[in-house]
Amino acid sequence: MSQAEVVREVVRDVPRRTSPLWTLGLLRSELFTTLRRWRTLALLAVLAAVPVLVGIAVKIETSDGSAAGGSGGEGPAFISQITNNGLFLVFTALAATLPFFLPMAVGVVAGDAIAGEANAGTLRYLLVAPAGRTRLLLTKYATVMSFCLVATLVVAVSALTVGALLFPLGELTTISGTRISFADGLVRAVLIALVVAASLIGLAALGLFVSTLTNSGIAAMATTVGLLITVQILDQIPQLHAIHPYLFSHHWLSFADLMRDPVYWDDLVKNLGLQALYAAVFGSAAWARFAGKDVTT
C-alpha cells in the first residue's frame, strides 16, 4: 500500500477519531515516519560519528603526552580537558556540532515537514480531514522539536560512550576551577544536552514557516539551511554587533555557563527567551500561512 493510500485510510476514519488520543496517535505516526526515513537515519549517523572522530583524534594527538588542541589551545571548547576526563567529550562534541551539524539536521527535517507532504501529494488528504490544520501544524512542530532532542541525545550518548572507552572518568574541574563529582558532572551534561536541544526550537519554527511557503521539500530544506548559514555569517561580522543579540544563534554556546560554579544564568536565560520569541513569531507566521494554504493543487 502506498503512502497516499495509507493517508486516505487514516483520513476516512478521522471523523470518529478527533479526540486527544487521535492526536497522540498522529504524533506517534509522525515521529515514526520521520525517524525511519533513510535521510533522517543518515543525519543521525553523521551526528553520532562526530564524537567518535573527535575522541579518536584527541587520543592520537595526545598519545605522545602533548596537550589536545596544541599548545595554543585550538579547537572546540573543553577539548583540552578530554584527556583528564572523558565526560568532557560530551561538552566538546556538543560545542563542535551546535554551530552547524545539529542545526543543519534540524533545518532539513523542519524544512521538509509540510513541503515534503505537499510534494508527495499526501498533504491534501490530511488537510481535508476535520482534524484541523492547527492540530496538524502543532503535530508537525512537536515532531521537529522531538527530533531536536533525539539528535542532541545521539551526540551526547555517542560522546559519553567514546569518552568512557578512550579516557578516564571521575571528578572533573569546572570552568571556575572548582572540583565536582562525576555524578554532578553527569547531571550537568544532561542539562547541557537539554539546553542545546531547546536552543534549536527557534530554528525549527523558522524551518516550519519556510516549509509552508513552498510545495518543494528540497527547496524548503535548502532555504532553511541557507538562512542558517547566513545568520551564522552575520553573527561573525563585528560591524553588525548591534544585531548580534537578536540572531537566534548568538547565544547558542552559552550552555558552557552550566559548567561554572556557581552557574551563570544570564546568557542562558537570554538564549532560551530568544528561542521562545523566534518560536512564537515564526510559529504564528507558519500558522497564518498554513491556515490559508491551497491544498487542491
Rank of each mutant, 00 (worst) to 15 (best):
V7N: 03
G111V: 00
R135M: 09
R16L: 15
A183C: 02
I243D: 06
L26N: 11
P238H: 02
M1R: 12
T212Q: 05
D266V: 13
Q3V: 15
D13Y: 15
A205P: 01
S284Y: 10
I192S: 09
S19T: 14
R37A: 10
L137C: 08
T18G: 15
V50N: 03
V187E: 13
T34M: 11
T83A: 14
V7E: 06
E171T: 15
V150E: 02
L277N: 01
L149I: 07
T230H: 12
F255T: 05
V231G: 12
L43T: 02
I201G: 01
S181P: 10
R133P: 09
T223L: 11
Y125S: 00
A197S: 05
V106D: 00
A222V: 14
W265P: 08
T143L: 02
T97S: 09
P15M: 06
K270Y: 14
W38V: 15
T97G: 03
G273I: 12
V109W: 02
A142F: 08
V263F: 07
T122L: 08
L169C: 02
V210M: 08
L127Y: 10
A49G: 08
L35V: 11
T214E: 07
S80Q: 15
L234W: 00
G132D: 06
N271F: 06
A288Y: 13
L258R: 06
G116H: 04
T297C: 03
S29T: 15
L272C: 10
G69V: 06
L24Q: 05
A42C: 09
V144H: 07
I237Y: 04
Q3T: 14
T230P: 06
G185T: 00
A164Q: 06
F78K: 01
D13C: 14
F32A: 14
R8G: 02
R124Y: 13
V10M: 14
F182T: 13
L123F: 10
L94T: 01
A159Y: 06
W265N: 08
A183E: 12
L268C: 03
P20G: 03
V46K: 05
N271L: 15
A118H: 09
V128C: 10
L165C: 08
G132P: 08
K59G: 04
L21G: 13
L227Y: 11
